[in-house]
Design a protein around this nucleic acid. Sequence first.
RNA 1: GGUCCCUUCGUCUAACGGUUAGGACGAAAGAUUCUCAGUCUUUAGAUAGGGGUUCGAUUCCCCUAGGGACUACCA
Length: 494
Amino acid sequence: MEVKVRYAPSPTGLQHIGGVRTALFNYFFAKSQGGKFILRVEDTDQERSSEEALQDLYDTLDWLNIKWDEGPIVGGPNGPYIQSERFELYKKYAKQLVASGHAYYCYCSEERLDEVRTQQKAEKSSQQGYDRHCRNLSEEERIEKEKQGIKPVIRLKVPTEGKTTFHDVLMGDITRKNIDVSPDPILLKGDGFPTYHLANVVDDHLMGITHIMRAQEWIPSGPLHVILYEAFGWEPPLYCHLPMVMGKDGQKLSKRHGSTSVRDFKEKGYLPEALMNYVSLVGWSFDGEREFFSQEELEKVFDITKINKSPGVFDYKKLDWFNGQYIRLMSDEDLEKALIPYLEKAGFIDKDISSDKKKKLDELVVCAKPRLKVLSDIVELAVFLFTNPEVAAPEMFVAKKMDLKTSYEALSKTYEIMIEDLNQGKSFEDVESDITNLATDMGVKVNGVFTPLRVALTSTTVSLPMSDTYKLLGKEESFKRIEKALEMLKKEVE
RNA sequence: GGUCCCUUCGUCUAACGGUUAGGACGAAAGAUUCUCAGUCUUUAGAUAGGGGUUCGAUUCCCCUAGGGACUACCA
């Protein structure tokens, strides 16, 4: 039997890490089994679904290079794949269940439902949820309600006795007493749209889904879905509930913990390959040793039985590390291309880059490559090159065990050395060793002479190595900055 | 409150019932005769607790504790 799985998000917000992890696991499982991966849009909540969220779903999967075999845009034999376009279908199936005695019309107002709920809560009743008020309405009562013009919902008649078991690939059998299953949940809402329960069962069946891989938060409704399958007389698919993705505090990952939307990660400059690789490792591992996998490899090597049962914390630091590794693997050309949008956004470069600037850029990329965790790091690293900010305070020139006077002295002597050496046609490497000697001569730490130079050239205490900085800036600009710095220091010393 | 699920270093995880309990991130230390990174080397760091079963439990069973999810005309 061909494996057929689906990712079925509801477009009610930006795609987040948890969702994408589910998508990835489904996708990898399908690929590894030579099966099909289906995308289905569950937009049955008309209030919360949005066009923007739908677009974000497409953008996200596109960015990650996840292609679906059937679904919106590409179509397929079981379409449409957007639930709002299947509107009539659910109505038909809901009514079928009413006709077969597995479901019933309910006329309860939301107000009454609220009342029931608050009362149950107040009494700490063991019975929480709908009180099945309309379950046994007589035909006369029903007609009376209809006459009043109340638009009913359709509820599933959940058995009040017995128990229901479903099988989970990872968890084994999970059994729940029927009395503990959600009491008669709504299948078809007042607006004629189905709830998740009805829509997903109907569609999974119609679309021939063989395995349902979804987050563990769905475990409690597993038995409910099986009851639905049985009511229809259908065979339920295999379940595989994926461990949750948590934040550092052990709670379900949310915005509190940092970025969670894939769009955010993209904008900060995470590479899709890195994100995919890392995300595939939360809740799954290959052998505990190997961690680097390309998409193609994951499509081959992914093994559903190696998925973990316990929830995993999303480690932003490890993602950073992965991303840095992937950046270092990029060619200089590719990296430069990836970096340009960030430099443009910062206002450092324009759309058309002069050949002069292009050369600078080429150099910059080489220097920056080992230092980047995310692409947007380039801005801070390059700010000295494209702007010339004021030094915030003269004290910045002063390294440990130095003072303003010695720092001034160090910088002016450094400047003299630079002028002389460079006039003699020496390389900057030679200049560096002479500066190092200067430190010895002055009886100070090497850092004591490099710090004033660093601050003079970059206005910051953290920067690229001085040789790179000098080469990037060029002789003229470098000298200009040193002179400016000397002026500032001189005032302080006098 | 009720139901269900989970439990190996701080984090992600590996370990046919037999290993000095392994790896990675993070942390700490050192090296790379300039900062920050990067790279390399090293160190610390875990089987939640208690009972069984067994010659032998991280591994199987039970209890306790802790954590989580669900409990909508949201998915």
